[in-house]
């Protein structure tokens, strides 16, 4: 499974409590839609650090990197390529 699919599955299961892929579009804002709050974001980042073996720096914790499945997928891809 690619990282984006795996991240989406995590968000669906842990914040929307469903396995329905259609419940969330990859471009949907996780923050504006109230899907992820401050503690949810910490859970999401911890999950990424564990499963993708990356370290997310404070300066990287910005909406541009974490506000949608697309953004997170692109961020993880950049981190893994670096």
């Amino acid at each position: 499974m690619d990282h984006k699919k795996q991240i989406k599955r995590f968000v669906l299961e842990n914040f929307l409590f469903t396995d329905d892929e259609n419940a969330l579009a990859n471009g949907d804002s996780l923050i504006q839609k109230g899907i992820v709050d401050s503690t949810g974001m910490l859970e999401l980042i911890s999950h990424l650090e564990e499963t993708c073996a990356i370290k997310v720096e404070n300066a990287e914790m910005i909406p541009a990197n974490f506000d949608s499945i697309d953004a997170i997928g692109a961020f993880v891809a950049r981190k893994l390529a670096a």
Partner: peptide
């Protein structure tokens, strides 16, 4: 709006 990114 929120505290999702506390350092911001």
């Amino acid at each position: 709006q929120n505290l999702v990114f506390p350092h911001l």
